[in-house]
């Protein structure tokens, strides 16, 4: 299915948010995930279903002022 990841359209075969993250190769605890502009805690990513044209943001710490 087509989903938007960090602003770019990707074709990904996955049923849940956790699967998307795994397919994309993210590992560790240094990032957080939002689905359609709502933060989805790590504990709920495995049970959060995704559908066509969902927007996913994956953010990690960066320098800031």
């Amino acid at each position: 299915m087509k989903i938007l990841i960090n602003g770019e359209t990707r074709e990904i075969a996955a049923a849940t948010l956790a699967e998307v993250i795994t397919v994309l190769g993210y590992k560790g605890d240094y990032f957080a995930v939002a689905l359609n502009r709502a933060c989805i805690p790590r504990s709920k990513q495995g049970t959060t279903a995704i559908k066509d044209f969902d927007e996913i943001e994956i953010l990690s710490p960066m320098q800031g002022g």
Binding site: Y26, S60, P61, M62, Q63
Partner: peptide
């Protein structure tokens, strides 16, 4: 110290987080 969150490229690692 202040930090921000930015879009993460997969496999880019957690360098800055480890630094902090």
């Amino acid at each position: 110290v202040t930090v921000s969150l930015r879009r993460q490229v997969a496999g880019d690692g957690s360098k800055f987080w480890d630094f902090l």
